[in-house]
């Protein structure tokens, strides 16, 4: 599934909706030992593609939170990365317990994390709000007992106030 990373492209050649790079990463539930590896790998890819530093940081934070959410709350999931000329589009899908009340879960400090999750530095109820704060487009859909799908986009030229 891994495609070679294009390292150069003549200016003005790419269309804004053209996917320059696409990769899918598997995330395994409860696999705390490897939690963060996907976000780290995606960050390396974007650095190689020459994405702006601020946009990489915002996307990496969103990816790390989304990855840890899958590890903490789902059986398994995936992070689909699509790099466009002026933005990065991410879809994180999981098969898991789902979120009964999305509005509640989107508020800072609201969490159903276990003490073990908190002992690992997560579960403060900041994950979903943090993903939304660091993305320029954000959407969440969840079905209890089935799973959750997060879609977010980070623009290369940053969001106001970030």
């Amino acid at each position: 599934m891994t495609q070679p990373i294009p390292t150069s492209r003549p200016a003005g050649e790419a269309k804004t909706d053209e996917v320059l790079y696409r990769e899918s990463f598997r995330i395994v539930g409860n696999d705390f030992e490897h939690g963060g590896e996907v976000a780290t790998r995606v960050k390396a890819i974007l650095k190689q593609l020459g994405f702006p530093t601020d946009a990489i940081r915002r996307l990496s934070i969103a990816n790390f939170e989304a990855e840890m959410n899958v590890i903490m709350y789902a059986a398994e999931g995936s992070l689909e990365l699509a790099v466009l000329p002026t933005a990065v589009r991410v879809t994180v899908s999981d098969r898991g317990q789902g979120i009964p009340d999305i509005e509640w879960a989107m508020q800072e400090g609201h969490s159903t994390a276990t003490p073990e999750m908190r002992a690992r530095g997560f579960g403060a109820g900041l994950g979903l709000p943090n993903i939304r704060r660091n993305s320029d487009e954000f959407n969440i859909e969840s079905t209890v007992g089935v799973g959750t799908v997060l879609r977010y986009v980070v623009y290369a030229n940053g969001k106001a106030g970030s």
């Binding site: 939690g35 963060g36 976000a39 990496s60």
Partner: peptide, 9 residues
């Protein structure tokens, strides 16, 4: 290891 992943991202 999450502390280092956090510092990195």
């Amino acid at each position: 290891v999450q502390s280092v992943h956090t510092a990195h991202v």
